[in-house]
Design a protein around this nucleic acid. Structure first.
Length: 287
DNA sequence: CCCACGACCTGTGGGC
DNA sequence: TGCCCACAGGTCGTGG
């Protein structure tokens, strides 16, 4: 589910409640999510202080004062909810998500500030681990990740090297977290549209100039989506219960059969399948 | 190494 | 209304 803008929105929502807080209690309601939770998970968290909350790709990272870092991934349907102090003070001030199903409340944390942060995940594709902060870059989930798309290491020259000799479709390659960390199906489709690039074009055959346009498309769409609080399709909600609204700004995602929004383009948006996933694009202006 | 595909799990929306 | 199937924001493992 959540791609970089949604994960970043969740991180920002959790930050005021968790960063600097000490965990009074941690509870697991089952022993596994996508993978087994780490051994003695609750005990290793209890009493620890979270020094900060950061994000790497689609992972949320919470370094603890005991030398370990909590690593969390939301999978497709993972969601956090804050209750108690730090929870939204003005219900109704924004469009609120449906309350999460308590059957899928798999993990929760209680802070010394009295807040309870609950992780819900109906599909259980989410996962968590605790690992040494010192060797965090070598953690198997993190070590192979490509650059942050909003960071300085993501540029046309980097992409040209990363794509060299790859004949795979550029859409598929952009979803590879080893190439760039944090993009998913929605924002790759949207970025390719902004760059006027066909999703089926071989990655290694795209000119440097057009790669520069793709970099700009990626940066712009991610920045706008973060600004909008992410996208809510089904179960995504920010940690304070609000819905993201960037879905109203999609140019191609989910718009099959509808007219292309590019000024002067008479095309319609089509849907194809690449690597088993839906791709949305305009066949007229995306080449 | 590259690449396509199925698997994981539950819920929902659309078509009939 | 009700049922069934297709499909969903991600990632991993397998097999060619």
């Amino acid at each position: 589910m959540p791609e970089l803008p949604e994960v970043e929105t969740v991180r920002r929502g959790l930050e005021p409640v968790l960063a600097g807080a000490r965990l009074r209690r941690a509870v697991t309601r089952r022993s596994d999510l996508r993978f087994p939770l780490p051994v003695r998970f609750a005990e290793r968290l209890t009493g620890r202080r979270i020094s900060s909350l950061s994000r790497r790709g689609k992972y949320i990272l919470a370094p603890l004062d005991g030398g370990e870092t909590l690593i969390m991934h939301l999978g497709m349907s993972g969601r956090f909810e804050i209750a108690g102090p730090g929870a939204p003070q003005r219900p109704g001030a924004f469009v609120r998500a449906q309350p999460p199903d308590p059957r899928h409340a798999h993990v929760f944390f209680e802070t010394d500030g009295g807040a309870r942060v609950t992780f819900y995940d109906p599909r259980r594709f989410g996962y968590m681990d605790l690992a040494s902060s010192a060797g965090l870059d070598d953690h198997p989930w993190l070590e192979g990740l490509g650059p942050e798309p909003l960071g300085a290491d993501f540029h046309a020259g980097y992409l040209a090297d990363a794509f060299a000799a790859r004949r795979q479709a550029i859409k598929t390659v952009m979803l590879d977290q080893r190439i760039v960390a944090g993009l998913g199906n929605i924002y790759v489709c949207e970025a390719l549209f902004r760059a006027k690039l066909s999703p089926s074009r071989a990655a290694g055959a795209v000119s440097r100039r057009r790669l520069a346009g793709l970099v700009e498309g990626v940066r712009a769409v991610l920045a706008e989506a973060i600004e909008a609080g992410g996208s809510t399709l089904r179960d995504y909600a920010t940690a304070d219960g609000a819905l993201g609204y960037f879905q109203h700004s999609f140019a191609v995602y989910g718009r099959q059969g509808e007219p292309c929004l590019r000024p002067g383009c008479a095309g319609r948006i089509g849907r194809t399948v690449q690597g088993g996933r839906s791709t949305f694009a305009c066949g007229v202006c995306q080449r």
